[in-house]
Design a protein around this nucleic acid. Structure first.
Lengths: 132, 132
DNA sequence: GCTTGACTCTATAGTAACTATAGAGATTAA
DNA sequence: TTAATCTCTATAGTTACTATAGAGTCAAGC
């Protein structure tokens, strides 16, 4: 199948597919006589794997590592576990950061109500005080 | 004071200060005879304001708007309130996303323990199944 | 036979908010 | 005099795409 068909099948954009090839997440495929890329079932599966990983917010470089590991099925899978663990901790850290941030923003919002002038605005006053 | 001093005083890097000037968050300052940027107390205050806003994850473009508003003290401050509200909702949405993601990642982690081969790895198997 | 639209290709630039580097000039201390 | 430290400008790199330009190919419809 050609790239457009693969795109429709997987829900990735045509540009994204070409980008993944350039970034070595998808192998360079054979080409038709007119130099069009030709894909098969295996291409679609690999692309869906990538898409699933991206949905878990894994970086392209992490996904590259996973793909490499998939190619040596006899190896220990500790690295996969380690990567997941690290990723989970990153997500947890980010959630903690954002939760704190949310608290600060809510406190800040409480400093002003509508119908004031900029000069009286409790939010701007707080931000201008250089406290905290 | 020169740029290095301002950097030390505010905890911003020298490049960041120059970048903010280029992005119009800081005004172009007067220069010394040798073409060095010269700053005063007001510069430091504005930079700290920016830094505080960045700490709240406000974008440079949002900060630019806030700075513009600060310059018309008689105006209504509704826009400040609206911006904060929108920002808070963004943060809340991101927290929800990450929390869901965290669930998925934890479930995935449960599929594999160490000491397996890549072939048996429950994580890779799950990711390869193209379910979900 | 010709035009139009839909598809493909490559290469390049833009996004956000910096960070890092190169190459040059000026000042200060030893 | 030399070396270190500061400043300047301009440019490239980061991430994961997305958008665009410009060119070629193919099929359908007139």
């Amino acid at each position: 199948m050609k790239i457009g068909e693969l795109a429709k099948l997987t829900g990735c954009s045509v540009q994204t597919i070409r980008y993944y090839e350039k970034e070595q997440l998808l192998p360079s495929t054979r080409r038709s006589e007119d130099n069009f890329r030709l894909y098969d079932e295996a291409s679609a599966e690999q692309l869906l794997f990538i898409k699933l990983c991206r949905g878990l917010d894994l970086s392209l470089s992490e996904i590259r590592q996973l793909l490499a590991l998939k190619c040596s099925p006899g190896a220990q899978c500790d690295e996969v576990n380690r990567m997941m663990e690290a990723h989970i901790q990153q997500v947890e850290a980010r959630i903690r950061e954002l939760t704190q941030l949310h608290e600060q923003l809510r406190a800040l919002r409480g400093h002003c109500s509508n119908q004031r002038t900029v000069e009286q605005c409790g939010i701007l006053q707080t931000l201008s005080s250089n406290q905290n």
